[in-house]
């Protein structure tokens, strides 16, 4: 796993694993034991009441990772009835909702949301736009090739005007399935009371040889360098691992500007010296990674330092798969 790295460095987690009272990977109590059964019985003896005084808060809506919510304010304006007539435009009788389907997408009103089920991830944006427009929604949806971890995720979104207290939510049906599996459908929920204009880029599987449009991690769970620690390592060491895994590589130089702003510049392998420093590795396309490098070794990783561009700790609205997209100076990837 960490075989690129010399033997002198190991992960800090390796050090603290043995400190755990219950060894990592081991269960604590035995669920079939008396204690566990008694607790279950006593807990469920009462009707579930919802929150009671003194309870700790529970996690808010658990989100699929990478999922994006936009909170744009609280003004709620209910959409008026009477939409453009489309191939299968249906009103639900309440006068405030409708459905629409074409070969690319089927959109239905479900509660407070319009739920768009993607029928053809490779369809042109015009077809998605037509469907939303038929329901009175100014939503521009584009499905773009994305690294495996970001398929089915919103990785870029922009809005103008409108007022919703909730957000655009991407998911899959059946719940939690992977969009690459047969029968798994990508779903986008749009608040029905969204009155503004939105542009949403949703990740789809890449065709062979197609560059990813997002900036997904190459070392994360879905990355082809999964498990490799690249942060602060010399190019030659990381390249050895890249080659060992039979991957291709491209480079982007990180340029730290005044005040810590970051920009990125594509550089050729010939320009990059073996002693340059790698700070991050991104998935460029299937079989190819993009190493983010600087000629000199900096004290800290510029991608993650506080106040230095994309990694700023306050930048909580973005996630790492798509998160680095959309920043000034960032090239489209691949």
């Amino acid at each position: 796993m960490r075989n690129v790295k010399g033997p002198e460095i190991k992960s800090v987690e390796d050090l603290i694993g043995p400190l755990a009272r219950v060894r990592p990977g081991r269960p604590g109590g035995e669920v079939s034991g008396t204690g566990a059964r008694t607790l279950l019985a006593s807990v469920t003896a009462e009707e579930p009441t919802g929150r009671t005084a003194g309870d700790v808060p529970v996690p808010a809506a658990v989100r699929r990772y990478g999922l994006r919510r936009l909170t744009l304010g609280a003004a709620a304006v209910v959409l008026a009835a009477g939409f453009v007539v489309g191939p299968s435009l249906l009103e639900d009788g309440s006068g405030g909702a409708a459905s629409y389907a074409n070969s690319a997408v089927a959109i239905e009103r479900e509660g407070g949301d319009y739920v768009a089920r993607i029928k053809d991830p490779f369809a042109e944006r015009e077809e998605f736009g037509e469907a939303f427009a038929a329901l009175g929604l100014k939503v521009g949806l584009n499905l773009s090739p994305a690294s495996p971890g970001a398929v089915g995720e919103i990785f870029r979104v922009g809005t103008s005007g409108g007022g919703v207290g909730r957000g655009f939510v991407a998911g899959t049906e059946p719940s939690g399935c992977s969009p690459s599996e047969p029968g798994c459908v990508m779903v986008l929920r749009v608040p029905a009371d969204f009155t503004g204009e939105a542009w949403i880029e949703l990740g789809r599987q890449a065709r062979p040889g197609e560059a990813y449009r997002n900036h997904g991690s190459a070392v994360g769970r879905y990355g082809e360098l999964r498990g490799t620690d690249v942060d602060g390592r010399p190019v030659e060491e990381v390249l050895a691992e890249v080659r060992r895994r039979g991957l291709q590589v491209e480079f982007q130089r990180i340029i730290v500007g005044d005040g810590g702003s970051l920009s990125f510049e594509a550089v050729t392998a010939g320009e990059v010296g073996p002693a340059w420093t790698v700070w991050d590795a991104e998935a460029a396309m299937a079989g190819k990674v993009r190493l983010m490098v600087t000629p000199e070794k900096l004290d800290d990783n510029p991608m993650y330092e506080p106040g230095l561009g994309p990694g700023g700790l306050d930048d909580l609205g973005e996630s790492d798969e798509p998160g680095k997209s959309g920043e000034p100076g960032r090239s489209g990837g691949g």
């Binding site: 796993m1 992960s11 390796d14 694993g17 620690d229």
Partner: peptide
């Protein structure tokens, strides 16, 4: 001292 090693 290496237990079930994990990488990040």
């Amino acid at each position: 001292m290496v237990p079930a090693g994990r990488s990040l």
